[in-house]
């Protein structure tokens, strides 16, 4: 019981620190992304033990898909806004997304050390 509680509390603490950071500095970067960087830094610097984080971190990461479902269903609220410009949105986003994947994957493959 205790290790899970500790692990989850630590992750929440980093999340809170991240939110505090972006809110105080009024940055357009989400608090959870800042929290991710803070947690990473703390782990690298060995301020927190990697073992004490993994117990809650792995199940959370494993359920990432689930946590996006409400936002996806929430698209329904924008049905009319989306429908007004449906073709432009679908065609431009789809072409651009595939292009982004192609560029980043090929460029990284070409530049990486073997």
């Amino acid at each position: 019981m205790y290790p899970i509680l500790k692990s989850f509390s630590l992750i929440m603490l980093f999340y809170f620190a991240g939110e505090l950071f972006t809110n105080l500095l009024d940055l357009p970067i989400p608090g959870n992304v800042v929290g991710m960087v803070l947690l990473f830094t703390a782990l690298q610097a060995k301020w927190v033990e990697s073992k004490s984080i993994s117990i809650a971190a792995l199940p959370l990461v494993g359920l990432l898909n689930l946590f996006f479902v409400p936002a996806g269903v929430g698209l329904l609220a924008y049905e009319q806004l989306l429908a007004q410009n449906l073709y432009v949105i679908i065609v431009s986003s789809a072409i651009s997304s595939l292009l982004v994947m192609w560029v980043v994957a090929k460029l990284f493959t070409a530049l990486k050390k073997t």
Partner: peptide, 24 residues
């Protein structure tokens, strides 16, 4: 639906923070 699934949506926060563990 939106009002009553906020608890699931909330966990997106800690889950993204937890990705820092993978980076480490």
């Amino acid at each position: 639906f939106n009002q009553n699934t906020r608890v699931i949506n909330f966990f997106l926060g800690p889950a993204v923070v937890a990705l820092g563990y993978l980076l480490h």
